[in-house]
Amino acid sequence: MIEIEHLSKTYDGRTVVDDVSMRIADGELVVVVGTSGSGKTTLLRMINRLVEPSAGKVSIDGVDCRAIAPHLLRRQIGYAIQGHGLFPHRTVSQNIATVPGLLGWDKAKISARVDELLSLFQLDPAEFRDRYPGQLSGGQQQRIGVARALAAAPKLLLMDEPFGALDPIIRARAQLDLRDIQRRLGTTIVLVTHDMNEAILLGDRIAVMDQARLLQYDTPRKIVVSPATAFVGELLGSGERPFRLLALQPVRDFVEPGMAEGQPIDANSSLRDALEEALWSGRKAVPVRDASGALLGRVTLETAIRQAAPQR
């Protein structure tokens, strides 16, 4: 558990982060969202003490972060940033091995860990181990960046706009991969972004920041249904709200027995996908299948329309 208590940061009299408190449970993926200059990056960087707080404190599992030397603290916390920050003079495996190397792991353990992570990110170790960052595509560089952040199996991973430099198609895939890997490893993640879609897609909880203050810290559903301030509503985009709400509800929870015509959709996709599919193909209901392809039933247009409204 990470506890952020009354955290503030002031530069020359200008307050960048103003009295922010929040708790993050183990295994949660928390997205901090806000416009540029909202203080979200500074908040993130105070967690691993890349920025020293002016007031307040951060503790991880009850241990005050100030009690640990900054560089030792950082070695326990994964850190991935926009534009990956890979070391161009080191191979992929040397890059991933950075923190284990700093921690003094033995060679065999490090190389086993490198291969394990490459496989986890669907990169063939034999092929990629000895490449240099300059020889990778943008998507591959980004995955190596995250793999490097996870190398020493940190319990906490901090990510600053990790997908910011990727084009939309690669970004969508990277987001799904992250969600998947996070579920598998149980890592606690704090991710900073300016993209509300990304926040709703990934976050177990969303923290909305504006002008140094934390405006709302809640589940995506609560944020969509009852935004705390006008600004939060603005970030959500007023015309989008019913669809955002649908996007938060997996089809699997609304399957009903019965048959429907045409192409089935995946049980893990959202009601928003189901609505789109139904509207586009002019159907009243869409069949639902599970990952193995077995038909589970159907989801109706009516259900989707009902669920698009926040009440109940």
Partner: peptide
């Protein structure tokens, strides 16, 4: 700057950063 940031974020000391990142680059 991103490379510097990553190096600091991963917990390299000033000396480690100099020898392992800045000088090689």
């Amino acid at each position: 700057p991103q490379v510097e940031e990553a190096a600091r974020g991963m917990g390299m000391t000033d000396r480690e950063r100099l020898w392992q990142v800045e000088l090689p680059l």
